[in-house]
Amino acid sequence: MPSSDRHDDAMPAGDDRPARFMKLFNRHSRQIYAYILCLVGNTTDVDDLHSETNLAMWQSFDQFDESDPQSDFAAWGRTIARYRVLRYFDSRKTAARQFSTQTIEALSQEVEHMAHTDRVHETLGECLQKLPPEQYELIRCRYLQAIHARKIAEQLGISVFTLYKRLAHIRQQLLNCIRRTLNLDAEGRL
């Protein structure tokens, strides 16, 4: 791993590590983000944990053996992310609303067997287009700038509970659409 003074390192001329890192990073960042979201659950802290993970991956990039055909950048990133999530859990004063170690282990193992994440992303656009316009706008506004559900509910003149129901229904439709489109079997595999 790089040393602790890595932050001060000047980038030598001709060093192509950033480009190589970025190529891998752009390809796999979504998977790592989704993994952190799986473990943390709420969207409040995912961005920071993902950023911390990105930074740690970059700092440790010397340790990632690109020449090894068995090496898996996303799996490596998930390992780093997992440690950060566990440490984040440690730092919280309460264990409320955080998964048990067994559940984290089970989710982590399951993720390793689900290799179709890129196709999920590709298929999502198609499934979003199949949503009724009002549902499309609703979910778009939920993600646009991460507007809090309470504010959306106020604007729509509905209760937060009703909004949650609608968002859950949209999520279910998107999930079913993606499974149908990708023809995922019960094992979640293509």
């Binding site: 979504r30 998977q31 983000y33 989704a34 993994y35 979201l37 799986c38 969207t43 989710l107 399951e110 993720v111 689900m114 994440t117 999920v120 992303h121 999502l124 979003l128 979910i139 939920r142 993600y143 991460a146 999520r171 998107l174 999930l175 993606i178 499974r179 995922l184 979640g188």
Partner: peptide, 11 residues
């Protein structure tokens, strides 16, 4: 996990 992927992609 699929729902997390969907959320990520939406985000």
């Amino acid at each position: 996990i699929l729902l997390a992927m969907i959320d990520t992609s939406c985000q």
